[in-house]
Computed example of a mutant assay.
Amino acid sequence: MRTYTHDTPAAIGTELAERIAAGIRAANEAGHAYVLGCPGGRSPMPVYEALAARLAARPVDCSRLIIAMMDEYLIVTPDGALLPPPVSAHYSCRGFGEREIVGHINAGLPDAFRVRPGNFWMPDPSEPGDYDRRLAAAGGVDLFLLASGAGDGHIAFNPPGSPRDSRSRVVDLAEQTRRDNLATFPDFKSLDEVPKHGITIGIASIAELSKAAAMIVWGAGKRTAYSRISEATAYDPAWPATIVVECRDAELHADREAADG
Protein backbone atom coordinates (compact mmCIF):
# COMPACT_ATOMS: atom_id res chain seq x y z
CA MET A 1 0.00 0.00 0.00
CA ARG A 2 1.30 3.42 -0.95
CA THR A 3 0.83 6.20 1.62
CA TYR A 4 0.44 9.89 0.78
CA THR A 5 0.28 12.81 3.19
CA HIS A 6 -1.41 16.01 2.03
CA ASP A 7 -1.49 19.45 3.58
CA THR A 8 -5.29 19.60 3.78
CA PRO A 9 -8.38 17.45 3.18
CA ALA A 10 -9.07 19.62 0.12
CA ALA A 11 -5.72 18.56 -1.34
CA ILE A 12 -6.74 14.91 -0.95
CA GLY A 13 -9.93 15.72 -2.81
CA THR A 14 -8.16 17.49 -5.65
CA GLU A 15 -5.70 14.66 -6.27
CA LEU A 16 -8.31 11.92 -6.26
CA ALA A 17 -10.77 13.97 -8.33
CA GLU A 18 -8.20 14.35 -11.09
CA ARG A 19 -7.55 10.61 -11.00
CA ILE A 20 -11.26 9.83 -11.22
CA ALA A 21 -11.86 12.26 -14.07
CA ALA A 22 -8.97 10.71 -16.01
CA GLY A 23 -10.35 7.24 -15.33
CA ILE A 24 -13.81 8.19 -16.58
CA ARG A 25 -12.31 9.65 -19.74
CA ALA A 26 -10.19 6.54 -20.37
CA ALA A 27 -13.20 4.27 -19.84
CA ASN A 28 -15.21 6.33 -22.31
CA GLU A 29 -12.46 5.99 -24.90
CA ALA A 30 -12.41 2.22 -24.31
CA GLY A 31 -16.19 2.06 -24.66
CA HIS A 32 -17.12 0.81 -21.20
CA ALA A 33 -18.45 2.08 -17.89
CA TYR A 34 -16.30 3.46 -15.08
CA VAL A 35 -17.41 2.11 -11.69
CA LEU A 36 -16.69 4.33 -8.68
CA GLY A 37 -17.21 2.79 -5.24
CA CYS A 38 -18.49 5.42 -2.83
CA PRO A 39 -18.94 5.61 0.93
CA GLY A 40 -21.22 8.15 2.52
CA GLY A 41 -20.23 10.49 5.34
CA ARG A 42 -17.61 13.14 5.99
CA SER A 43 -14.36 11.46 4.92
CA PRO A 44 -14.99 11.35 1.15
CA MET A 45 -16.70 14.76 0.94
CA PRO A 46 -13.52 16.59 -0.17
CA VAL A 47 -13.31 14.17 -3.10
CA TYR A 48 -16.94 14.60 -4.10
CA GLU A 49 -16.68 18.38 -3.86
CA ALA A 50 -13.46 18.49 -5.89
CA LEU A 51 -14.83 16.08 -8.50
CA ALA A 52 -17.96 18.20 -9.00
CA ALA A 53 -15.84 21.34 -9.37
CA ARG A 54 -13.41 19.61 -11.74
CA LEU A 55 -16.19 18.32 -14.00
CA ALA A 56 -17.96 21.69 -14.02
CA ALA A 57 -14.75 23.44 -15.10
CA ARG A 58 -13.68 20.80 -17.64
CA PRO A 59 -16.67 18.56 -18.42
CA VAL A 60 -16.22 14.85 -18.99
CA ASP A 61 -19.00 12.60 -20.24
CA CYS A 62 -20.32 10.84 -17.11
CA SER A 63 -23.30 9.17 -18.78
CA ARG A 64 -21.61 5.77 -18.33
CA LEU A 65 -20.27 6.49 -14.85
CA ILE A 66 -21.65 4.07 -12.25
CA ILE A 67 -21.82 5.25 -8.65
CA ALA A 68 -21.76 2.16 -6.41
CA MET A 69 -22.65 2.97 -2.81
CA MET A 70 -21.34 0.79 0.01
CA ASP A 71 -24.16 0.54 2.53
CA GLU A 72 -27.49 1.73 3.86
CA TYR A 73 -29.26 1.90 7.19
CA LEU A 74 -32.22 -0.39 7.74
CA ILE A 75 -35.16 0.38 10.00
CA VAL A 76 -37.57 -2.07 11.58
CA THR A 77 -41.12 -1.76 10.26
CA PRO A 78 -44.16 -2.47 12.48
CA ASP A 79 -44.40 -5.98 11.04
CA GLY A 80 -40.73 -6.67 11.82
CA ALA A 81 -39.27 -6.27 8.32
CA LEU A 82 -35.99 -4.46 7.74
CA LEU A 83 -36.27 -1.75 5.09
CA PRO A 84 -34.20 1.27 4.03
CA PRO A 85 -35.31 4.62 5.46
CA PRO A 86 -37.08 7.17 3.25
CA VAL A 87 -34.69 8.96 0.92
CA SER A 88 -35.72 12.19 2.64
CA ALA A 89 -34.38 10.97 6.00
CA HIS A 90 -31.31 12.97 7.02
CA TYR A 91 -29.32 9.76 7.54
CA SER A 92 -30.36 7.99 4.32
CA CYS A 93 -27.26 6.81 2.49
CA ARG A 94 -29.24 6.78 -0.75
CA GLY A 95 -30.28 10.35 -0.09
CA PHE A 96 -26.66 11.30 0.61
CA GLY A 97 -25.48 9.71 -2.63
CA GLU A 98 -28.22 11.24 -4.72
CA ARG A 99 -27.65 14.73 -3.28
CA GLU A 100 -23.96 14.96 -2.46
CA ILE A 101 -22.49 12.82 -5.23
CA VAL A 102 -24.79 12.51 -8.24
CA GLY A 103 -26.57 15.81 -7.62
CA HIS A 104 -23.38 17.84 -7.39
CA ILE A 105 -21.73 16.08 -10.34
CA ASN A 106 -24.76 16.55 -12.57
CA ALA A 107 -25.26 20.19 -11.59
CA GLY A 108 -22.18 21.25 -13.53
CA LEU A 109 -22.61 19.02 -16.58
CA PRO A 110 -24.71 19.36 -19.74
CA ASP A 111 -27.66 16.98 -19.91
CA ALA A 112 -25.95 14.55 -22.29
CA PHE A 113 -22.99 14.15 -19.90
CA ARG A 114 -24.92 13.58 -16.68
CA VAL A 115 -24.92 10.42 -14.54
CA ARG A 116 -27.97 8.36 -15.49
CA PRO A 117 -30.50 7.41 -12.78
CA GLY A 118 -30.00 3.71 -13.52
CA ASN A 119 -26.27 4.08 -12.86
CA PHE A 120 -26.72 4.85 -9.18
CA TRP A 121 -26.39 1.49 -7.41
CA MET A 122 -27.20 0.41 -3.86
CA PRO A 123 -27.19 -3.03 -2.20
CA ASP A 124 -30.69 -4.47 -1.84
CA PRO A 125 -31.57 -5.87 1.61
CA SER A 126 -33.94 -8.39 0.05
CA GLU A 127 -31.13 -9.89 -2.07
CA PRO A 128 -27.76 -8.81 -0.59
CA GLY A 129 -25.71 -11.28 -2.61
CA ASP A 130 -26.94 -9.80 -5.86
CA TYR A 131 -24.81 -6.72 -5.26
CA ASP A 132 -21.54 -8.64 -5.47
CA ARG A 133 -22.70 -10.40 -8.61
CA ARG A 134 -23.80 -7.12 -10.18
CA LEU A 135 -20.46 -5.45 -9.49
CA ALA A 136 -18.56 -8.47 -10.79
CA ALA A 137 -20.65 -8.48 -13.97
CA ALA A 138 -19.73 -4.81 -14.48
CA GLY A 139 -16.06 -5.79 -14.43
CA GLY A 140 -15.42 -4.78 -10.83
CA VAL A 141 -14.95 -1.41 -9.17
CA ASP A 142 -12.39 0.73 -11.00
CA LEU A 143 -11.65 2.80 -7.89
CA PHE A 144 -13.09 2.14 -4.46
CA LEU A 145 -13.01 5.19 -2.20
CA LEU A 146 -12.86 3.93 1.38
CA ALA A 147 -13.20 5.40 4.85
CA SER A 148 -12.55 4.14 8.37
CA GLY A 149 -14.70 4.55 11.45
CA ALA A 150 -12.89 6.69 14.01
CA GLY A 151 -13.81 4.66 17.06
CA ASP A 152 -13.80 1.06 15.89
CA GLY A 153 -12.39 0.95 12.36
CA HIS A 154 -15.63 -0.12 10.72
CA ILE A 155 -15.62 0.05 6.94
CA ALA A 156 -18.99 0.54 5.33
CA PHE A 157 -21.13 -1.13 8.02
CA ASN A 158 -18.76 -4.06 8.62
CA PRO A 159 -18.28 -4.17 12.41
CA PRO A 160 -15.16 -5.31 14.26
CA GLY A 161 -14.91 -9.06 14.04
CA SER A 162 -16.19 -9.23 10.48
CA PRO A 163 -14.81 -12.33 8.76
CA ARG A 164 -12.29 -11.82 5.96
CA ASP A 165 -14.51 -13.87 3.64
CA SER A 166 -17.71 -11.91 4.38
CA ARG A 167 -19.86 -10.84 1.45
CA SER A 168 -22.56 -8.20 1.08
CA ARG A 169 -25.11 -8.86 3.80
CA VAL A 170 -27.45 -7.46 6.43
CA VAL A 171 -25.68 -6.75 9.74
CA ASP A 172 -26.37 -5.58 13.27
CA LEU A 173 -24.55 -2.29 13.74
CA ALA A 174 -21.92 -2.17 16.47
CA GLU A 175 -22.64 0.34 19.24
CA GLN A 176 -19.38 2.20 18.54
CA THR A 177 -20.26 2.40 14.86
CA ARG A 178 -23.57 3.96 15.84
CA ARG A 179 -21.77 6.40 18.14
CA ASP A 180 -19.41 7.38 15.33
CA ASN A 181 -22.43 8.07 13.18
CA LEU A 182 -23.80 10.57 15.67
CA ALA A 183 -21.07 12.85 14.32
CA THR A 184 -21.53 11.77 10.72
CA PHE A 185 -25.23 12.63 10.87
CA PRO A 186 -25.48 15.44 13.46
CA ASP A 187 -29.27 15.63 13.19
CA PHE A 188 -29.44 12.51 15.34
CA LYS A 189 -30.37 13.80 18.80
CA SER A 190 -29.23 10.69 20.69
CA LEU A 191 -27.86 7.20 20.19
CA ASP A 192 -31.39 5.85 20.50
CA GLU A 193 -32.27 7.47 17.16
CA VAL A 194 -29.45 5.74 15.25
CA PRO A 195 -30.71 2.58 13.49
CA LYS A 196 -29.38 -0.72 14.79
CA HIS A 197 -29.25 -2.53 11.45
CA GLY A 198 -27.77 -1.98 8.03
CA ILE A 199 -26.91 -3.58 4.74
CA THR A 200 -23.27 -3.46 3.77
CA ILE A 201 -20.87 -4.57 1.10
CA GLY A 202 -18.63 -7.28 2.54
CA ILE A 203 -14.96 -7.37 3.47
CA ALA A 204 -14.13 -9.93 0.78
CA SER A 205 -16.31 -7.98 -1.65
CA ILE A 206 -14.17 -4.87 -1.21
CA ALA A 207 -10.89 -6.72 -1.59
CA GLU A 208 -11.88 -8.93 -4.49
CA LEU A 209 -14.06 -6.58 -6.53
CA SER A 210 -11.87 -3.46 -6.42
CA LYS A 211 -9.30 -2.84 -9.14
CA ALA A 212 -7.87 -0.01 -7.04
CA ALA A 213 -8.65 1.39 -3.60
CA ALA A 214 -8.03 4.72 -1.89
CA MET A 215 -8.49 4.99 1.87
CA ILE A 216 -9.23 8.57 2.96
CA VAL A 217 -8.28 9.60 6.49
CA TRP A 218 -8.21 13.19 7.68
CA GLY A 219 -8.57 15.26 10.83
CA ALA A 220 -7.40 14.79 14.40
CA GLY A 221 -10.25 12.38 15.06
CA LYS A 222 -8.77 9.89 12.61
CA ARG A 223 -5.27 9.65 14.10
CA THR A 224 -5.93 6.21 15.55
CA ALA A 225 -7.39 5.08 12.22
CA TYR A 226 -4.30 6.34 10.42
CA SER A 227 -2.00 4.52 12.83
CA ARG A 228 -3.90 1.23 12.64
CA ILE A 229 -4.13 1.25 8.85
CA SER A 230 -0.64 2.53 8.04
CA GLU A 231 0.94 -0.08 10.30
CA ALA A 232 -1.17 -3.01 9.07
CA THR A 233 0.35 -5.71 6.89
CA ALA A 234 -2.79 -7.83 6.53
CA TYR A 235 -6.47 -7.69 7.38
CA ASP A 236 -7.08 -7.27 11.11
CA PRO A 237 -10.72 -8.06 12.02
CA ALA A 238 -10.35 -5.88 15.12
CA TRP A 239 -10.09 -2.88 12.75
CA PRO A 240 -11.96 -3.83 9.56
CA ALA A 241 -10.71 -0.85 7.53
CA THR A 242 -7.32 -2.59 7.38
CA ILE A 243 -8.73 -4.60 4.48
CA VAL A 244 -7.41 -1.83 2.26
CA VAL A 245 -3.90 -3.29 2.58
CA GLU A 246 -5.11 -6.44 0.81
CA CYS A 247 -6.74 -4.55 -2.07
CA ARG A 248 -5.09 -4.26 -5.46
CA ASP A 249 -3.39 -0.93 -6.20
CA ALA A 250 -4.07 0.28 -2.65
CA GLU A 251 -3.37 3.80 -1.40
CA LEU A 252 -3.77 5.61 1.93
CA HIS A 253 -4.42 9.34 1.65
CA ALA A 254 -4.17 11.38 4.86
CA ASP A 255 -3.87 15.01 5.82
CA ARG A 256 -1.12 16.21 8.13
CA GLU A 257 -3.46 16.51 11.08
CA ALA A 258 -4.20 12.77 10.94
CA ALA A 259 -0.76 11.58 9.89
CA ASP A 260 1.48 13.78 12.06
CA GLY A 261 -0.60 13.66 15.23
Rank of each mutant, 00 (worst) to 15 (best):
261 G>K: 09
208 E>L: 04
113 F>N: 03
4 Y>E: 11
211 K>Y: 04
96 F>K: 12
100 E>K: 15
30 A>E: 12
115 V>L: 03
223 R>F: 10
29 E>F: 05
8 T>G: 07
113 F>R: 03
84 P>R: 02
31 G>K: 02
242 T>F: 11
193 E>P: 01
45 M>W: 12
30 A>N: 03
128 P>N: 04
196 K>Y: 01
231 E>G: 15
143 L>K: 09
138 A>C: 10
241 A>I: 09
207 A>K: 10
12 I>N: 02
44 P>W: 15
3 T>Y: 11
55 L>V: 11
29 E>D: 13
198 G>Y: 02
162 S>Q: 01
61 D>S: 11
133 R>A: 13
12 I>V: 12
28 N>L: 07
11 A>C: 08
36 L>S: 14
188 F>Q: 00
176 Q>P: 01
65 L>A: 15
25 R>P: 15
65 L>R: 13
205 S>W: 07
128 P>F: 01
144 F>P: 14
115 V>Q: 04
156 A>R: 06
60 V>I: 09
145 L>T: 08
9 P>M: 11
228 R>M: 14
103 G>H: 00
121 W>L: 10
192 D>S: 01
245 V>P: 04
114 R>E: 00
164 R>G: 07
173 L>M: 03
95 G>L: 08
21 A>C: 13
258 A>L: 02
184 T>C: 14
215 M>I: 05
98 E>N: 07
184 T>R: 15
59 P>C: 01
5 T>F: 04
84 P>A: 04
84 P>V: 04
19 R>A: 14
20 I>H: 10
165 D>N: 03
50 A>C: 07
53 A>H: 02
96 F>R: 09
221 G>F: 00
233 T>M: 06
65 L>K: 15
1 M>F: 06
68 A>D: 14
